[in-house]
Protein backbone atom coordinates (compact mmCIF):
# COMPACT_ATOMS: atom_id res chain seq x y z
CA UNK A 1 0.00 0.00 0.00
CA UNK A 2 1.04 3.64 -0.47
CA UNK A 3 1.71 5.32 2.86
CA UNK A 4 -0.29 8.43 3.66
CA UNK A 5 2.77 10.52 2.92
CA UNK A 6 3.35 8.78 -0.43
CA UNK A 7 -0.31 9.22 -1.39
CA UNK A 8 -0.10 12.95 -0.55
CA UNK A 9 3.09 13.25 -2.62
CA UNK A 10 1.44 11.50 -5.57
CA UNK A 11 -1.65 13.73 -5.44
CA UNK A 12 0.55 16.79 -5.23
CA UNK A 13 2.68 15.79 -8.23
CA UNK A 14 -0.35 14.90 -10.36
CA UNK A 15 -2.05 18.22 -9.54
CA UNK A 16 1.10 20.11 -10.56
CA UNK A 17 1.35 18.02 -13.75
CA UNK A 18 -2.23 18.85 -14.72
CA UNK A 19 -2.00 22.48 -13.67
CA UNK A 20 1.09 23.29 -15.75
CA UNK A 21 0.39 22.48 -19.36
CA UNK A 22 0.71 24.08 -22.78
CA UNK A 23 -1.99 26.82 -23.06
CA UNK A 24 -4.95 25.38 -25.02
CA UNK A 25 -5.01 28.22 -27.58
CA UNK A 26 -1.40 27.52 -28.45
CA UNK A 27 -2.03 23.77 -28.65
CA UNK A 28 -5.01 24.46 -30.94
CA UNK A 29 -2.74 26.24 -33.39
CA UNK A 30 -1.07 22.88 -34.00
CA UNK A 31 -4.33 21.56 -35.45
CA UNK A 32 -5.00 24.32 -37.96
CA UNK A 33 -4.61 23.15 -41.52
CA UNK A 34 -2.83 25.58 -43.69
CA UNK A 35 0.79 25.79 -42.47
CA UNK A 36 3.81 25.27 -44.75
CA UNK A 37 7.18 23.80 -43.68
CA UNK A 38 8.54 27.19 -42.63
CA UNK A 39 5.53 27.99 -40.45
CA UNK A 40 5.58 24.47 -39.03
CA UNK A 41 9.20 25.02 -38.01
CA UNK A 42 8.24 28.25 -36.26
CA UNK A 43 5.24 26.68 -34.56
CA UNK A 44 7.17 23.65 -33.28
CA UNK A 45 9.91 25.97 -31.98
CA UNK A 46 7.34 28.02 -30.08
CA UNK A 47 5.76 24.85 -28.73
CA UNK A 48 9.14 23.59 -27.52
CA UNK A 49 9.81 26.90 -25.82
CA UNK A 50 6.52 27.02 -23.98
CA UNK A 51 6.97 23.37 -23.08
CA UNK A 52 10.25 24.21 -21.33
CA UNK A 53 8.47 26.96 -19.38
CA UNK A 54 5.68 24.55 -18.42
CA UNK A 55 8.27 21.95 -17.42
CA UNK A 56 10.04 24.40 -15.11
CA UNK A 57 6.76 25.37 -13.43
CA UNK A 58 5.94 21.69 -12.89
CA UNK A 59 9.43 20.93 -11.62
CA UNK A 60 9.28 23.70 -9.02
CA UNK A 61 6.49 21.67 -7.43
CA UNK A 62 8.54 18.50 -7.09
CA UNK A 63 9.10 18.28 -3.31
CA UNK A 64 12.78 18.88 -2.52
CA UNK A 65 13.71 20.19 -5.96
CA UNK A 66 13.92 23.82 -4.90
CA UNK A 67 16.14 22.89 -1.96
CA UNK A 68 18.75 21.52 -4.37
CA UNK A 69 21.78 23.63 -5.30
CA UNK A 70 20.60 26.31 -7.77
CA UNK A 71 23.08 25.39 -10.50
CA UNK A 72 22.18 21.72 -10.10
CA UNK A 73 18.53 22.67 -10.64
CA UNK A 74 19.52 24.23 -13.96
CA UNK A 75 21.72 21.27 -14.94
CA UNK A 76 18.84 18.86 -14.23
CA UNK A 77 16.32 20.89 -16.23
CA UNK A 78 18.71 21.44 -19.10
CA UNK A 79 19.60 17.76 -19.20
CA UNK A 80 16.01 16.50 -19.08
CA UNK A 81 14.01 19.14 -21.03
CA UNK A 82 14.09 17.23 -24.33
CA UNK A 83 13.21 13.88 -22.75
CA UNK A 84 10.38 15.42 -20.72
CA UNK A 85 9.10 17.06 -23.93
CA UNK A 86 8.98 13.73 -25.80
CA UNK A 87 7.34 12.03 -22.81
CA UNK A 88 4.66 14.68 -22.59
CA UNK A 89 4.06 14.86 -26.32
CA UNK A 90 3.70 11.09 -26.32
CA UNK A 91 0.68 11.60 -24.10
CA UNK A 92 -0.91 13.75 -26.79
CA UNK A 93 -0.53 10.95 -29.31
CA UNK A 94 -1.94 8.28 -27.05
CA UNK A 95 -4.84 10.16 -25.48
CA UNK A 96 -8.07 9.63 -27.37
CA UNK A 97 -7.98 12.74 -29.55
CA UNK A 98 -11.06 13.68 -31.61
CA UNK A 99 -11.21 12.04 -35.03
CA UNK A 100 -8.26 12.92 -37.26
CA UNK A 101 -6.31 15.16 -34.86
CA UNK A 102 -3.47 12.70 -34.41
CA UNK A 103 -3.12 12.41 -38.20
CA UNK A 104 -2.95 16.22 -38.55
CA UNK A 105 -0.25 16.41 -35.86
CA UNK A 106 1.72 13.56 -37.39
CA UNK A 107 1.43 15.12 -40.85
CA UNK A 108 2.60 18.47 -39.51
CA UNK A 109 5.67 16.98 -37.94
CA UNK A 110 6.45 14.98 -41.08
CA UNK A 111 6.15 18.16 -43.16
CA UNK A 112 8.31 20.48 -41.06
CA UNK A 113 11.67 19.77 -42.63
CA UNK A 114 12.68 17.18 -40.02
CA UNK A 115 14.45 14.28 -41.76
CA UNK A 116 12.86 10.82 -41.75
CA UNK A 117 15.66 9.23 -39.73
CA UNK A 118 14.54 11.26 -36.70
CA UNK A 119 10.81 11.01 -37.25
CA UNK A 120 10.71 7.21 -37.26
CA UNK A 121 12.30 6.74 -33.78
CA UNK A 122 10.04 9.48 -32.44
CA UNK A 123 6.84 7.79 -33.61
CA UNK A 124 8.15 4.38 -32.53
CA UNK A 125 8.53 5.86 -29.06
CA UNK A 126 5.00 7.28 -29.14
CA UNK A 127 3.71 3.86 -30.17
CA UNK A 128 5.58 2.04 -27.39
CA UNK A 129 4.27 4.54 -24.85
CA UNK A 130 0.75 4.06 -26.20
CA UNK A 131 0.97 0.30 -25.75
CA UNK A 132 1.56 0.75 -22.02
CA UNK A 133 -1.80 2.50 -21.55
CA UNK A 134 -0.20 4.73 -18.94
CA UNK A 135 -2.33 6.49 -16.34
CA UNK A 136 -1.76 10.18 -15.69
CA UNK A 137 -0.15 9.38 -12.33
CA UNK A 138 2.42 7.29 -14.19
CA UNK A 139 3.07 10.10 -16.67
CA UNK A 140 3.52 12.64 -13.88
CA UNK A 141 5.81 10.39 -11.83
CA UNK A 142 7.85 9.29 -14.85
CA UNK A 143 8.36 12.93 -15.81
CA UNK A 144 9.57 13.74 -12.28
CA UNK A 145 11.85 10.67 -12.34
CA UNK A 146 13.28 11.74 -15.72
CA UNK A 147 14.06 15.22 -14.40
CA UNK A 148 15.64 13.85 -11.21
CA UNK A 149 18.25 11.84 -13.10
CA UNK A 150 21.44 12.17 -10.99
CA UNK A 151 23.99 11.61 -13.77
CA UNK A 152 23.06 14.54 -16.00
CA UNK A 153 26.04 16.64 -17.11
CA UNK A 154 27.25 19.26 -14.60
CA UNK A 155 25.22 17.97 -11.66
CA UNK A 156 27.46 18.24 -8.61
CA UNK A 157 25.46 16.83 -5.68
CA UNK A 158 24.29 13.61 -7.36
CA UNK A 159 23.45 12.00 -4.03
CA UNK A 160 20.85 14.64 -3.17
CA UNK A 161 19.21 14.16 -6.57
CA UNK A 162 19.33 10.38 -6.21
CA UNK A 163 17.53 10.61 -2.87
CA UNK A 164 14.67 12.54 -4.42
CA UNK A 165 14.50 10.19 -7.41
CA UNK A 166 14.42 7.15 -5.12
CA UNK A 167 11.33 8.52 -3.39
CA UNK A 168 9.57 8.96 -6.71
CA UNK A 169 10.61 5.51 -7.96
CA UNK A 170 9.24 3.90 -4.82
CA UNK A 171 5.88 5.63 -5.21
CA UNK A 172 5.72 4.63 -8.88
CA UNK A 173 6.68 1.02 -8.07
CA UNK A 174 3.92 0.69 -5.46
CA UNK A 175 1.42 2.50 -7.70
CA UNK A 176 2.11 0.08 -10.57
CA UNK A 177 1.63 -2.90 -8.25
CA UNK A 178 -1.69 -1.53 -7.05
CA UNK A 179 -3.00 -0.48 -10.46
CA UNK A 180 -1.61 -3.33 -12.55
CA UNK A 181 -1.66 -6.33 -10.17
CA UNK A 182 -1.80 -8.84 -13.02
CA UNK A 183 1.05 -7.18 -14.93
CA UNK A 184 4.19 -7.78 -12.86
CA UNK A 185 6.45 -6.23 -15.54
CA UNK A 186 4.61 -2.95 -15.84
CA UNK A 187 7.00 -0.98 -13.62
CA UNK A 188 10.04 -2.43 -15.39
CA UNK A 189 8.51 -1.56 -18.77
CA UNK A 190 7.96 2.05 -17.68
CA UNK A 191 11.63 2.33 -16.71
CA UNK A 192 12.54 0.75 -20.03
CA UNK A 193 10.92 3.74 -21.74
CA UNK A 194 13.41 5.99 -19.95
CA UNK A 195 16.29 4.33 -21.77
CA UNK A 196 14.43 4.70 -25.05
CA UNK A 197 14.00 8.38 -24.20
CA UNK A 198 17.76 8.78 -23.84
CA UNK A 199 18.34 7.64 -27.44
CA UNK A 200 15.69 10.13 -28.55
CA UNK A 201 17.61 12.79 -26.67
CA UNK A 202 20.68 11.96 -28.73
CA UNK A 203 18.66 11.97 -31.99
CA UNK A 204 17.15 15.31 -31.07
CA UNK A 205 20.55 17.03 -30.83
CA UNK A 206 21.51 15.75 -34.31
CA UNK A 207 18.05 16.58 -35.65
CA UNK A 208 18.36 20.20 -34.53
CA UNK A 209 21.67 20.70 -36.29
CA UNK A 210 20.43 19.16 -39.55
CA UNK A 211 17.15 21.07 -39.26
CA UNK A 212 19.00 24.35 -38.89
CA UNK A 213 21.20 23.60 -41.87
CA UNK A 214 18.29 22.75 -44.17
Amino acid sequence: ELSQEQQALLNYIVDAYNKHRIPPDQAKKLLQEQFNAEENFQLLTEMATSHVQVLVEFTKNIPGFQSLDHEDQIALLKGSAVEAMFLRSAQVFTRKLPQGHTEVLEDRIRKSGISEEFITPMFNFYKSIGELQMLQEEHALLTAITILTPDRPYVRDQQAVEGLQETMLEVLRKFCKLQHPQEAQHFARLLGRLTELRTLNHHHAEMLTSWRMS
Partner: peptide, 21 residues
Protein backbone atom coordinates in the same frame (compact mmCIF):
# COMPACT_ATOMS: atom_id res chain seq x y z
CA UNK B 1 10.01 36.57 -27.75
CA UNK B 2 11.08 33.70 -25.45
CA UNK B 3 11.40 31.36 -28.43
CA UNK B 4 14.74 32.77 -29.56
CA UNK B 5 16.33 32.57 -26.11
CA UNK B 6 18.67 29.62 -25.54
CA UNK B 7 17.41 26.64 -23.56
CA UNK B 8 19.38 27.62 -20.48
CA UNK B 9 18.15 31.23 -20.62
CA UNK B 10 14.54 30.09 -20.76
CA UNK B 11 15.14 27.78 -17.80
CA UNK B 12 16.90 30.47 -15.74
CA UNK B 13 14.13 32.97 -16.45
CA UNK B 14 11.38 30.49 -15.62
CA UNK B 15 13.17 29.38 -12.43
CA UNK B 16 13.41 33.00 -11.40
CA UNK B 17 9.65 33.03 -11.80
CA UNK B 18 9.54 36.16 -13.94
CA UNK B 19 8.20 34.62 -17.11
CA UNK B 20 5.32 37.11 -17.20
CA UNK B 21 7.34 39.98 -18.63
Amino acid sequence: PASNLGLEDIIRKALMGNMED
